[in-house]
Design a protein around this nucleic acid. Sequence first.
DNA 1: GACCGAAGGG
DNA 2: CCCTTCGGTC
Lengths: 256, 256
Amino acid sequence: MKIVTWNVNSLRIREDLALNWLEAEDPDVVCLQETKVTDQEFPEDAFGDLDYDVSFYGQPAYNGVAIASHEAQQDVTRGFPSDGEDSERRFLAATVEGIRFVDLYVPNGQTYASDKYTYKLAWLDELAGLLEKEIAAHEDVVVCGDFNIAPRDVDAHDPHLLDEKSLFVSTEERAAFQRLLDLGLTDAFAHLHGDHDKPYTWWDYRGGSWERNRGLRIDHFLVSESVLARAKSVTIHRAMRGEEGPSDHVPVVLEL
Amino acid sequence: MKIVTWNVNSLRIREDLALNWLEAEDPDVVCLQETKVTDQEFPEDAFGDLDYDVSFYGQPAYNGVAIASHEAQQDVTRGFPSDGEDSERRFLAATVEGIRFVDLYVPNGQTYASDKYTYKLAWLDELAGLLEKEIAAHEDVVVCGDFNIAPRDVDAHDPHLLDEKSLFVSTEERAAFQRLLDLGLTDAFAHLHGDHDKPYTWWDYRGGSWERNRGLRIDHFLVSESVLARAKSVTIHRAMRGEEGPSDHVPVVLEL
DNA sequence: GACCGAAGGG
DNA sequence: CCCTTCGGTC
């Protein structure tokens, strides 16, 4: 089974790129983030043409998550229980072939001083409570998406510089990430490929980050023990960052 | 000799489309309007690759004219004598192979009540004075571009409706056009193809104008007697309006 | 309807 | 840098 997580940074702009890649790779389950498309405008037919069933939870301009799968989806959950009509749409879960998939777009925290930093930590706190229930209810669990956290120093090109601004590597963010692991989840990439050098999944558009390989590993698969036992590999498709008109994130593939 | 006039509605957006078409058609002289590109950003090299010498007179965002030619250009004139630094850039002239080419982007007049209507008429008035001198100085003259005037009723899909708004067909606009002819110029298309049905060169992007063929003939070649004697045909490349990502104007080709 | 600049987000 | 929305032009 082939599972993809990919922050596409606008499915509208990236529709052809994303669907061509999906057609070539033909994964079984696809978790997308930052679709930036409303549910009314979601290109459901284009996914249908590739034989995907697709659930989506989007809004205008920002955020937005989607799960596509060849097999049928059950128990689709859109957003947090506390979400109102105008909450940011960052959480989507669905059961496919007995596996519970949770697709996340974790808020970007900006700086320590920022309201967004507080919001990110609060969001991760609410997430932990929700995942605890999902894990209690399902043996096979895959939590994936854009976490906006680089969990280890080797996952960031310059952890000290970043920490001054709090971006992606602060003690509190990493503690929140660890709390998710403590629920019984494992960072599949770190477990399988711990010695991988510069295992980045995102490079800022600015300042030649890609050309200088100044990236971060912030797109993750956190899996339950039963899934970990079946996990063969996690592959970062970094070549996608060099394509024409790329997302700033590349697809990451978990093979079971 | 093959001469083109074409309002490209942003050379930045239409660069590939325009250059591919130029490569296929290989005209000797090309007059472009609404390049919407500053002189610093003009894609001179791309024209050079097709063996064109090119003069341009542009500004950010709006207006902008350019003349490209295989043979060298002499006596390039940029704008009206009265133009200041921030005047709209709508006039460019150059001599190529002994022919004086004048490339125009006449202002759009909007409505009778609009300041732009007054500006259009004043601009045409100043133009007439300038063309008088050009015609006195040169035997072979080609004045072409986007005139934003449909000179005859057959040049507009609905002249009465348009006249209510003043757009393109008002008595004053047509009188200004006639005044240019009275300088000793001839509307080459009307002269050679007077019986052509619906000879439109522009279709509004809105309201399915193209699909319903509700267009206007507003892109013209006005030529001196000596050029008229050599004129074989004027061809409206209306198929370009149906291409992917078209300008709202199509290229018009004068063959000598 | 398809351009443009400007301003906010990442 | 590349995405978004918005108001302006034609």
